[in-house]
Design a protein around this nucleic acid. Structure first.
Length: 556
RNA sequence: GCGCCUGUAGCUCAAUGGAUAGAGCAACGGACUUCUAAUCCGUGGGUUGGAGGUUCGAGUCCUCCCAGGCGUGCCA
């Protein structure tokens, strides 16, 4: 809470200066508190004076000095406060404050870095949501890592988050899927069949057909095609869903709800939604189809709800689906979609306005993953069956490395995933760098136990903690103190990738400290102090990896 | 054509409008009789695609241009 406390101190100083007539009463701009890059600039810095300059009609440096004059240093917690050109205020923390923060961190333990900003509001993150017609591709892996980490981040700041997978199990692609399985089934029985032009040609279709054959025998061979397809659709569908669940669980992603698109048709919610729109004059007939007036809202043009052949569109289902989410009490909905769906955002937002819930839906667009092998692009198409599945990737690269790799990139940056590179990186992937720091700390503690040292000491007294005074120790401690605000900011900005960069910086400072100083030494008091510091470091690494869904191994 | 995203070191990518733009990988040179060398230290590497603009300050915001990706279905 260093930054938060400094912010309040600065605000109080501003108010005091205003009371004294040194500054004029104005609304405070949105100033920042940050760790400066250069050590000469202290431990924390704020730009408030720079931002106030124009409204106060004074030079920034003068404003900085006025604020410093009125700054109450909170019982000597600040060692030094300086104004620096062009107008920054630089804070240097006193050792007392650093000790207090370390104790607070240790006391917080598992809950250090958690906030109550969300006030227990019920939120939902929907992600992956693949068509249940085949294995997951690499892009799905990215959404899985991203959606899960985002959900965890939001939980960390106090929202109650539900993770949901929307199963697109309705529509023509399911029929095509059934037809493809049927064709492979008959092939296995030695029949000459023409494979559907638009069918799914992946090898996995044969696998599914083979499983059906093993379980059901050839009893469907002579059956009417309609009936056979209907049965195969269900059998194959089950297999695929089970498989998706298993793969995602191996990746460490567990959904609270698997929501079926078909259920919306069966429950009558789709019909009810169409009725709702018609009653409000938001839907109309044209050229044999039913259209929604999305152009009344923010969309460019109207969209079809029911095709002229009577079949409702995916969009119609989706409106019913989002009404369902609202009815389940969701106060905020995040949909994580691939960039190939971004054209869909406007119409969905229009639909949310139409059902009276503007602003509740937040669409996050994840850019595509380009799969490469040794620099050459690999085509990914379910139709041709020419693809590397997410499972294969998971087997090759491993859960932690794959997750971490996906999470180091911002969601709106397209990602090149070179399989050869990923395999090479599996040796020196940054995830191991971070995990190694954690394992090293665990190793130190084990060594301490062997030596009969009490490694469990929760709150060493001040005269012990005062021994933490070297540059490496203080740098490490200060980095730990960035964590709380970072979690909050990453959650609010929907930016889990920043946590990975933080972890690498933190691990770097720890490794450097480790090579410079011995934790367990003949000096028992210093040992106590350093043990405490490394345990604080372990807390933060653990809590942060937990949010990312990456394991924190005790040894490597 | 229009809409969204992207363009930063050789490669992959960071950087809520802040001070001298940072990591990792790759390259090169060093460090283990030590609580784990999956580590550490050092060296080289940049006109942030280009041109204007906004302001105390722009990789970041605005306009235009160039390049790439994805959309622009009565597919999902």
């Amino acid at each position: 809470m260093i930054a938060k406390t400094l912010r309040i101190m600065v605000e109080d100083a501003f108010a005091a200066a205003v009371r004294d007539g040194k500054l004029s009463q104005q609304e405070l701009p949105n100033f920042i508190l940050e760790r400066p890059r250069l050590k000469e600039h202290g431990h924390w810095a704020t730009n408030i004076a720079l931002l106030l300059s124009s409204q106060q009609k004074k030079p920034p440096l003068e404003i900085a000095r006025i604020i410093i004059d009125y700054l109450d240093d909170g019982e000597g917690r600040l060692e030094k406060v300086e104004a620096a050109a062009p107008g920054f205020i630089n804070f240097t923390l006193g050792l007392k404050w650093i000790r207090e923060e370390l104790l607070r961190l240790a006391e917080g333990g598992e809950s250090y870095g958690r906030w109550q900003i969300g006030k227990g509001e019920k939120w939902q993150v929907e992600f992956v949501s693949a068509n249940p017609v085949g294995p997951l591709h690499i892009g799905h892996g990215r959404w899985a890592a991203l959606g899960d980490a985002l959900a965890s981040l939001l939980e960390a700041v106090g929202y109650r988050v539900e993770r949901e997978f929307y199963i697109n199990d309705y529509g023509s692609q399911m029929d095509m899927f059934a037809q493809s399985v049927e064709a492979r089934y008959l092939e296995l029985l030695g029949e000459e069949v023409e494979f559907p032009e638009e069918g799914y040609r992946g090898e996995y279709i044969r696998t599914i057909a083979r499983e059906i054959l093993e379980r059901e025998g050839d009893r469907w061979k002579g059956e009417a095609s309609d009936k056979r397809r209907a049965v195969f659709k269900e059998l194959a569908y089950r297999q695929v869903i089970d498989h998706l669940k298993k793969t995602l669980e191996e990746f460490g992603v567990v959904f609270d709800v698997w929501f079926s698109e078909r259920s919306l048709h069966q429950s009558g919610e789709l019909e009810a939604t169409l009725k709702f729109l018609k009653e409000r004059q938001l839907a109309y007939e044209k050229e044999g189809a039913l259209w929604m007036r999305t152009s009344l809202f923010s969309d460019d043009k109207d969209r079809v709800l029911v095709r002229s052949n009577g079949a409702p569109t995916y969009f119609a289902s989706d409106i019913a689906y989002h009404r369902n989410k609202i009815n389940r009490g969701m106060e905020h909905i995040i949909d994580l979609w691939g960039a190939d769906h971004h054209g869909y955002v406007k119409r969905m937002e229009a639909a949310m306005e139409a059902i009276g819930k503007p602003g509740v839906l937040e669409c996050i667009i994840g850019q595509m993953v380009n799969l490469k092998r040794g620099g050459e692009p690999v085509r990914m198409s379910k139709r041709t069956g020419e693809m590397v599945t997410f499972e294969e990737l998971l087997d090759e690269v491993g859960r932690d490395a794959a997750r971490y790799f996906f999470l180091t990139r911002s969601h709106d940056s397209a990602l090149d995933f070179d399989i050869e590179l990923a395999k090479e990186q599996s040796q020196n992937n940054p995830v191991y760098y971070v995990q190694y720091a954690h394992a090293r700390i665990c190793s130190i503690l084990r060594y301490g136990v062997e030596r009969g040292i009490d490694v469990e000491e929760q709150a060493p007294p001040p005269h012990i903690l005062e021994l933490l005074a070297t540059e490496e120790e203080l740098d490490l401690a200060l980095k730990l103190f960035e964590y709380e605000e970072l979690v909050r900011d990453c959650a609010l900005d929907r930016a889990p990738h920043r946590l990975t960069y933080y972890l690498e910086e933190l691990a770097g400072l720890f490794h450097y400290f480790y090579t410079k100083h011995r934790v367990i030494s003949e000096d028992l008091e210093l040992t106590r102090a350093r043990l405490f510091l490394v345990k604080c470091t372990r807390h933060v690494i653990r809590n942060c990896l937990e949010i990312l869904g990456v394991s924190a191994p005790e040894s490597m």
